[in-house]
Write a protein that binds this DNA or RNA. Structure first.
Lengths: 113, 113
DNA sequence: GCGTTATATGCCTTGATATGTATATACCTG
DNA sequence: CAGGTATATACATATCAAGGCATATAACGC
């Protein structure tokens, strides 16, 4: 789970995943479309493969990479455990706290940066 | 979105989020329960706050931190766009590719780690 | 086999970040 | 205001990961 987050936290990997949502693609195609070097793409794909987000299908010298469902399913299940947070009046409470925070900030010290 | 992934990719931050699923808690409480130093917790909370995953509610000297719904909702929406992946026969196709990969792997070199 | 194409890996440098220790800030009690 | 408590921040350090460049591996066509 954490590894999946880490995998998706990298902007270029995220872009690769988004691209693959449109269907399987070989490395070079990804490389060209996203303007990334080929080794860069290969390395990112390796990580995505490690966490199970993609799988490669050899096709001659090419490798067709495509998304895999499992990690996304797990992600979905994990989110379900938090569903109460955006259901019902929990929402309002959340908003309330957000308001309180905004009131607190202006008083707060502003150091630098 | 990506920043949220990055926030959750850090193990201790993930633990904090999971802990907060049980309800709001002050910093010291989090610190004790997760066996983390207080500055450590404060810093992680700052990051979680930046991405909107938590909000702080001042209560005397304490600050009650609690989860916020919005980023999780965004996650959910983002996942919806991938839902086709684990619906219907797309699943089977995925499994098939996984099989093909297993056949390919055994040939592969195993480096280290 | 040889050259070409497609992809993977290795090494190196650099930037980001998590942590510890020390200290600053804020609020409380008396 | 003094002392105590709760939290935030600063600084230094160490670890890790992303990217570039060179090269290795593998399958193709001839």
């Amino acid at each position: 789970m954490i590894d999946t987050f880490a995998a998706l936290a990298e902007p270029n990997r995220f872009r690769i995943v988004e691209l693959l949502r449109g269907g399987p693609r070989p490395v070079n195609d990804i490389s060209r479309r996203l303007r990334l070097s080929q080794p860069q793409v290969s390395k990112h794909l390796r990580i995505l493969k490690t966490v199970g987000l993609v799988a490669a299908q050899p096709r001659a010298q090419e490798r067709l990479y495509q998304l895999r469902a499992q990690p996304l399913k797990e992600f979905h299940d994990w989110l379900e455990r938090y569903r109460q947070l955006w259901d019902a009046r929990f929402e309002e409470l959340d908003e309330l706290v957000a308001e309180l925070n905004k009131k607190e900030k202006p008083n707060g010290r502003k150091k630098h940066k």
